[in-house]
Amino acid sequence: MARSASRSRPAAAPAADGEINPKAPCPCGSGRRYKHCHGSGYAAPVRRPFEGLAGEADWVALRELVPAATGKLRTTDGRDVTLASVLPGGTPALVRANEEILLGVQLPTSSDDVSRDLGTALAAALQAPAGAPVDPGPIGAAGSAGPRLQELLDTSAPLQVTVHDDFGFWLEGAEPNPAAQAGLRQANEMIMPTVRLEGLEAAYWCRPAVDRAHVRWVRPEAEEPLLDALARLAAAGELGLGEGTKYAGAFRALGLVVPVWDVPADVPGADWAGPAAELQTRLEAALAVGTPLTADERRARAGLLSRQVTLR
């Protein structure tokens, strides 16, 4: 029996001037409706906090994978900033005596929007005098009130990453005291050998142990088409990086998928750039296929999903 008009749900009233319609997408970019996100009093995590920045995949790599690396950034008003994987003590930002700003992407704690955490730190550094401590205020679980990186940085400037063998860049241009030197030595002892594969975006070789090595590759594609393409390659026996290598699985980090391959530990890291470039060509071809997955490819995809975990 049809529901009577008297019991039908009333139409939502339009939002008043200056207010956000509860059913509209939340302005934070989470993809959720406003009433289920910031409008509910709970801010859903921003799934891809570095989306819109040049080199998004490398931002994720420096945040999650790379122990010692730097890259050059430029603010919207033309000021140069050095991005660092991590700074001493997990400090979010430093301003050197020569006015150089260093921004550390690996933080001890973070809120549901890493971009706003780092933007808050960068905004404080831009206002701090040379050589003075940077106090960005609260950063972490309580959230940050400052701007996002996308508001402060020139998003057209490419991010060129340099991987370092140690943390010597921490003390460049400074005269460190014995305590700082001791801290540097201690940090250097914990570095995992890492190489960025030349000519590829966000592909890194690392050796966590003498007898183990991996290639970790942060991919910029959306997850579903990427998994389809990887499944096509897996079904065709073309997902490896060559003899003695094995696809180990993948993890999700800050909205992107990071496939991982086990590779022989006795092969220098830089030597994997060629095999990875060949895989890139095969992957691009697989991404361009528009037909549905075959039965073998669907089984391969299920196997890939079983070896995928989420970091954050």
Rank of each mutant, 00 (worst) to 15 (best):
Q181K: 10
P225K: 08
F167G: 01
A174L: 14
L171T: 05
L304Y: 10
V95C: 08
V309D: 12
G269E: 02
V309T: 15
H36C: 11
L126V: 03
A43Q: 14
A97H: 12
C37Q: 08
H164V: 04
A54L: 06
L241Q: 00
K23N: 14
P129M: 05
E64P: 00
A157S: 13
A250D: 05
C206I: 02
A16T: 11
R216K: 03
P25M: 05
E189P: 00
D113A: 07
V81P: 03
L65I: 05
K23V: 07
P178E: 13
G269F: 04
Y204D: 07
A276K: 02
G244A: 01
P178T: 01
I101C: 06
A187K: 06
D266S: 11
A236F: 09
P49C: 02
V218Q: 07
A84T: 09
W261F: 07
L283V: 00
N177F: 11
H38K: 12
L118G: 05
R32F: 13
G52Y: 05
G140Y: 07
Q186N: 13
Q150L: 15
A44M: 12
G240C: 05
V95W: 08
L305N: 13
V46C: 10
R196M: 06
I191W: 04
V163C: 01
A180E: 15
M192V: 11
D77N: 11
V309G: 12
P138W: 09
D80M: 12
